[in-house]
Nucleic acid binder design. Structure first.
Length: 420
RNA sequence: GGAGAGAUGACUGAGAGGCCGAAAGUGGCAGAUUGCUAAUCUGUUGUGCGGGUUACACUGCACCGAGGGUUCGAAUCCCUCUCUCUCCGCCA
């Protein structure tokens, strides 16, 4: 959410940003709604003022007749107030809905373009292995090695659910531990978070739990939804709090399951584990002072790079273009691993600097000595390890001609032996 | 799941229909002072949204967990919800 005053004052900039991001939204409509809401509020305040005056009068000595007149007027105003109040409510809601649709500002260096074809590759680490045999994809490999069972997943929970089995289970646990260890080394406070969260928290982070195209599963008859990422719970942790400047930056790691409906993405790049309804993820989250978020963003990507370097997976770092940024992100870097089975790069992590966009909504501020008032913190998130995607990268890159899978030493696991 | 207690400003904690945006203390900020690393004294110190001003000043409304209700008037009374604590039950 952007500040309304800022939208008013930086109108040109906001409109240019909407174009760059390919968001069709009429700012006029919002500004008009804002005008209406403020006018309605002014009228309401005037009525309330009068009623307060009457209240004060009632405390002074009055004749019974005057008294009766006051009560009468106040009663009458009360009805008007109720009407005006309802009007203010609806107008403010209108305004808020529109305001929420305005995406964050964009880092000036982010590439401009409508879709991911315009993402900029910043650097490539490692090289796609040249295999002297024809590469299999992870589905083929994992089914042959009895590491995954999609059929049973579908039977029990539906398409795009799966049972992870045998060495793949150890692999998931090892990956989670590996990432957790690194995050602790890097100074993160590591948490296992709830897998569900309240609607207002989802909203604050920028996920919409309702609507036709929602990515979010909601629990019927409750305010709860299954989280799509621990970004939601970690960001929500400090909702409504005022932090001390000296306490910043605050770094949290979160281990959680992630649930996604993947509405509308059927068939697209969805083979095997690439796009599933549930997976495990270790997430990084940072709360910083505004002036520190740029450097923190670089640091988060550096940690992601460290993780995948140690895992020995070839990857590249991509600066995501304006049209492909989510609404809250000011700038976003993705890591894309080489996936031999698909013979292309596939997203394995994502690091976003959301500046104060989420903090304003969640009301997370900080106070510092010598400065009046409080400011909103900047919030950043990044993937340490999304297990399902990491499995694809590890298994496809680790495959050998004999059908066995080589695993990186840092996980402390033996290679997975061939079964045929 | 059952019974009870509670939620007040950055924090502790009073307030029990109008004199309460809210005592007092702590902390923060500004100043005074003192021969010694801090004490003492004085002042000041909430947030949001409006109006107003070049900018201040000034000013209106709202906010005492959230949402409703009663009342001319609610932090205070009633209802619902959320959360915290205590006890009992149940369970992993």
């Amino acid at each position: 959410m952007l500040d309304l005053r800022e939208i008013r004052e930086r109108r040109e900039e906001v409109e240019a940003n909407l174009r760059n991001r390919n968001v069709s939204l009429k700012l006029d409509v919002l500004l008009e709604a804002d005008e209406h809401a403020r006018r309605a509020k002014r009228e309401l305040d005037a009525v309330r003022q009068r009623r307060n005056e009457i209240g004060a009068l009632m405390q002074t000595p009055l004749s019974p007749a005057e008294r009766a007149r006051c009560i009468e007027e106040s009663r009458r105003l009360k009805e008007i107030e109720a009407e005006l109040d309802a009007d203010v409510q609806t107008r403010e809601k209108e305004r808020r809905d529109l305001q929420m649709a305005v995406p964050n500002f964009t880092h000036p260096a982010a590439p401009v373009g409508p879709d991911d074809a315009h993402n900029r590759v910043l650097r490539t680490v490692g090289e796609p292995a040249r295999l002297d045999f024809s590469a299999k994809d992870h589905v083929e490999l994992m089914e042959a090695l009895d590491l995954v069972d999609f059929d049973s997943g579908a039977k029990v929970a539906g398409q795009k659910f799966y049972f992870l089995k045998n060495e793949a289970v150890l692999l998931e646990l090892a990956l989670v531990q590996f990432a957790t260890r690194i995050l602790r080394e890097e100074g993160f406070t590591v948490c296992i978070t709830p897998d569900l969260a309240r609607r207002e928290i989802l909203d604050g982070i920028g996920f919409n739990p309702r609507g036709a195209s929602t990515q979010i599963y909601s629990v019927a008859d409750s305010e709860l939804s299954l989280i799509a990422t621990a970004e939601i719970t970690l960001g929500g942790m400090l909702a409504g709090e005022v932090l001390e400047a000296e306490a910043l930056p605050l770094l949290f790691g979160g281990i959680s399951h992630c649930f996604r409906t993947e509405a509308g993405s059927a068939g697209r790049e969805s083979r095997g584990l690439y796009r599933v309804h549930q997976f495990t993820k270790v997430e990084m989250f940072a709360f910083t002072r505004p002036e520190d978020s740029g450097a923190m963003h670089e640091r988060i990507v550096a940690i992601e790079e460290r993780i995948y370097r140690e895992l020995g997976v070839p990857f590249r770092v991509v600066d995501v273009c304006t049209g492909d940024l989510g609404a809250p992100a000011y700038r976003k870097y993705d890591l894309e691993a080489w996936m031999p089975g698909r013979e292309r790069w596939g997203e394995i992590t994502s690091a976003s600097n959301c500046t104060d966009y989420q903090a304003r909504r969640l009301d997370i501020r900080f106070r510092e000595q010598g400065r009046k008032g409080t400011r909103h913190v900047h919030m950043l998130n990044g993937t340490a390890i999304a297990v399902s995607r990491a499995l694809i990268a590890l298994i496809e890159n680790g495959q050998r001609a004999d059908g066995s899978i080589r695993l990186p030493a840092c996980l402390g696991l033996a290679d997975i032996p061939a079964r045929w």
